[in-house]
Design a protein around this nucleic acid. Structure first.
Lengths: 202, 202
DNA sequence: CTGTTAACTTGCCGATGTCAAGTTGTCACT
DNA sequence: AGTGACAACTTGACATCGGCAAGTTAACAG
C-alpha cells in the first residue's frame, strides 16, 4: 500500500483545496500558497505536481468537464423524448454551475487555463459531444431542417451566457420590480423558445 | 485651462494604459504597476484615482458599457425593421468584442469588478435597455405572444455566450474538419433561429 | 544494505498591491 | 502679491505572491 509522505493522493487534495479557496475568495484572490497551506504542505508542493499555477487550474477545469460530461449524460439518459433530453441537459448544466462554482469559474477562462492541454481538450470535446448528440437525435427524430452544429452552438451559448449573466439577470429583475425567476425556470423557457425556432425552420 | 501635473487627464490615460496591458498580456498578467509605468507615473498614482485595482477595472468596465450602449443604439437606428435591428445589435455587439477586447474581458467578470458601483450599474442597465427596447418593438410590431424579458434575456445570453465561447467554437470547427465560420455569420444564424422561435410561439 | 528515484521541503529572488507619509503643484481669497 | 488649503501626485516600506534551485526524506528494487 502506498502512503507516500502525508497524503495518499496529494494532487487530488490540492484540487480540493483550490476549489475551496476559489469558492470562498474568488478566482481573483486565488493563491497557490494558500492552497498549499490548506492542504498542509509546503508552498512549492503544488508546483511539483502541476508545474504551474496554470497546471493546477487546468487540472481543475478538466475535472469540471468530466463532471459536466457525466451529469449531462445521466440527465439525458433519464428522458426518452429528445426535446425533454435537451431541457434535462440544460438543467443539469446550471445545476452543475451551482454545485461546482469553482470549476465553472475556471473551465471557460482561456487566460488562466492551458488551452493546449490534451486531457482538457478531450474532456471538453466529450462534454460538447453529449449536447451535440442530443441535438442530432432531436433533428433526426422530428426530421428538422436546421444545421446541427449551428443549433448545438446556440444551445451551448445560451446556457453559457445564462450561467454567466445569472447574477446580473437576477439583479435586473429586482431593479425592474419583477418577480424573481429560478434559473431552472429560465433554462426551461430558453429551451422552449429555441425548440420553437428549430421546429418552425423551413 | 487645467494642466494639473503631467497629464491633462490622468484617469483616462490610466484607462488607456490598462486597456493596452490587458490586450497585450491578458487579464491574468495585468498589473497596476505596469499600467503606471506605461502612463509614466509612479506606481501608486493609479490607487490615488481609483483607490484599488478593482476601481480601475470597474472604471474600464463602465466605459465598456457606455460604448456598448452607443454602438448598439447607432446600429439599431440605421435599420427600420425591428428584426433587422436585432441582427444589427448582435453584430454591433460582436464587433465591439473584437474592437475593444480588453473592455469585454472585464465587463462581465464579477470577481474583478465592483458590482456595487453605481455608475457601472447604470451604464449596464442602459445597454440592456437598448436591446430590450428593440425586442419590445419587435414583439409589438409583429404582435407576438412571447414574454419580453424572457426573450431579451435569451438574446443577451446567446450573444454573451457566443462572445465567450468563440475561441472554443472556432477550435471545434477546426477539430471537426468544418469550414471556419465568421462570428458575424454566427450571430446572424443565431438571430435567425431565435426569430423563428418567437414568431412561431403560440 | 545500498543505490535510485520520486515526493516533497527550504530558501531565495524579483515583482506585486496597498498603506502611510511626504512633496509639489494649483487655485481661492484677502 | 502673498498665504493658506487642497488636490495630485511621489517615495518608501511591508507582506505576499509565483517560480526556481538545491537540499532532504521516504519508498522500493536489487
Amino acid at each position: 500500500m502506498h502512503t507516500p509522505y502525508h497524503h495518499g493522493d496529494l494532487p487530488n487534495a490540492l484540487r480540493r483545496a483550490a476549489e475551496e479557496v476559489i469558492t470562498e475568495k474568488g478566482l481573483g484572490n486565488f493563491s497557490l500558497r494558500e492552497v498549499a497551506r490548506r492542504a498542509g504542505v509546503s508552498h512549492a508542493a503544488p508546483c511539483h505536481h502541476f508545474g504551474d499555477v496554470r497546471g493546477l487550474l487546468t487540472s481543475l477545469a478538466t475535472e469540471g468537464f468530466e463532471v459536466l460530461c457525466r451529469v449531462t449524460s445521466e440527465a439525458a439518459s433519464r428522458e426518452t423524448d429528445p426535446s425533454e433530453r435537451l431541457v434535462a441537459i440544460g438543467e443539469a448544466y446550471v445545476a452543475l454551475a451551482a454545485q461546482y462554482p469553482a470549476h465553472c469559474q475556471v473551465m471557460f477562462r482561456v487566460d488562466v487555463v492551458d488551452q493546449s492541454d490534451q486531457r482538457l481538450m478531450d474532456a471538453g470535446l466529450r462534454a460538447y459531444g453529449v449536447l451535440r448528440d442530443t441535438v442530432a437525435d432531436l433533428i433526426s427524430s422530428e426530421n428538422l431542417k436546421v444545421d446541427l452544429d449551428n443549433t448545438t452552438n446556440l444551445c451551448w451559448s445560451a446556457m453559457q451566457g445564462l450561467v454567466e449573466l445569472q447574477p446580473k439577470l437576477d439583479h435586473l429583475d429586482e431593479l425592474l420590480g419583477r418577480p424573481a425567476v429560478d434559473t431552472r425556470e429560465r433554462i426551461r423557457r430558453f429551451t422552449e423558445l429555441i425548440l420553437n425556432g428549430v421546429r418552425s425552420h423551413v
